[in-house]
């Protein structure tokens, strides 16, 4: 308790004017473009983004309701993200459990290999996956997209799970065995409940990452159009441009909710790693 009070004391002195200005500049720099995206979702000009908009309308929200291609793309993205996240939860948790529990020759190298997909530029992951699928004669499909997304989704889940495992006392599992629980009961009653929030946060981040992924998807998709690809194609077409903006607003809403939830669920634990990509 005393140490927390000390931290508060140290944080109390007010920030200088320069620091404040810098912070506000950074906030605007990051968020102003998003405001413009929202603004142009309501413009009456359908060919270019002129400023100020010649007029405001909500008719693009009506237009998008009848654009089946948009809803197909949205559904495909949600479905890919869902399946990739499930795969990542299973494989990422198992990988974390193995790396936590066993030490073996080359463990550091394996850790690096697991983390590599998120460290490498997406374009490298994309090209190598495409080359690998070609070599193996795997036709590009829904499942090649899922596999491509799973590569980096696993990392997010793995990072969260292993951080939580490292933080929990190894004696906890021994205590459970000591009290009569076998390995399966220990996993169910002790390990899993302790991992739950970390897995939830990791899963949500994985979902959000997969949902707006475009680079790896470009290389691993066949005829499928995920939402980011749809938007990219839509943007270069001359008509109904604001529809893209309306789609962007919908996407923002969809990705924002899980990220916010993940933040609130894990903010006391301070070990959510790998949230950037």
């Amino acid at each position: 308790m005393r140490s927390r009070a000390a931290v508060l004391d140290r944080a109390t002195p007010r920030a200088g004017i320069g620091l404040k200005a810098g912070a506000w500049f950074a906030v605007l720099f990051l968020n102003l473009p998003i405001l413009f995206i929202v603004l142009y979702g309501f413009t009456t000009d359908e060919q270019s983004y002129s400023f100020p908009p010649p007029g405001l309308t909500t008719r693009w929200f009506g237009v998008i309701m009848n654009r089946g291609d948009f809803w197909d793309a949205l559904w495909l993205s949600v479905s890919v993200a869902f399946v990739a996240t499930i795969a990542a939860l299973i494989l990422g948790t198992l990988a974390a459990a193995a790396m936590y529990r066993f030490s073996f020759f080359g463990k550091e190298s394996v850790t690096l290999l697991i983390l590599l997909p998120i460290a490498l530029p997406g374009i490298v992951t994309g090209i190598s996956l495409r080359a690998a699928f070609d070599l193996a004669d795997v036709p590009f499909s829904y499942w090649t997209i899922v596999a491509g997304h799973a590569t980096f989704c696993i990392v997010v889940v793995y990072n969260n799970a292993i951080a939580r495992l490292r933080r929990s006392s190894p004696a906890m599992m021994e205590a459970s065995m000591d009290l009569g629980a076998n390995s399966l009961q220990t996993f169910r009653h002790v390990v899993l409940p302790n991992l739950a929030t970390a897995l939830l946060a990791g899963g949500m981040l994985a979902f959000a990452l997969s949902f707006d992924e475009i680079i790896v998807t470009t290389f691993t998709a066949g005829q499928q159009t995920t939402l980011p690809i749809w938007m990219f194609k839509e943007l270069v077409r001359p008509h109904q441009r604001p529809v893209t903006n309306v789609a962007a607003i919908i996407v923002m809403a969809i990705t924002f909710v899980p990220i916010l939830l993940a933040y609130y669920l894990t903010r006391d634990t301070q070990d959510v790693a790998g949230s950037g990509k």
Binding site: S169, A171, M172, E174, A175, S176, M177, D178, L179, G180, A181, N182, V190, N194
Partner: peptide, 15 residues
């Protein structure tokens, strides 16, 4: 888990 002994751990190891 099949032994008739129980342990009080050094760091307590509570759940």
């Amino acid at each position: 888990y099949d032994r008739d002994v129980n342990t009080v751990f050094q760091d307590y190891a509570l759940f």
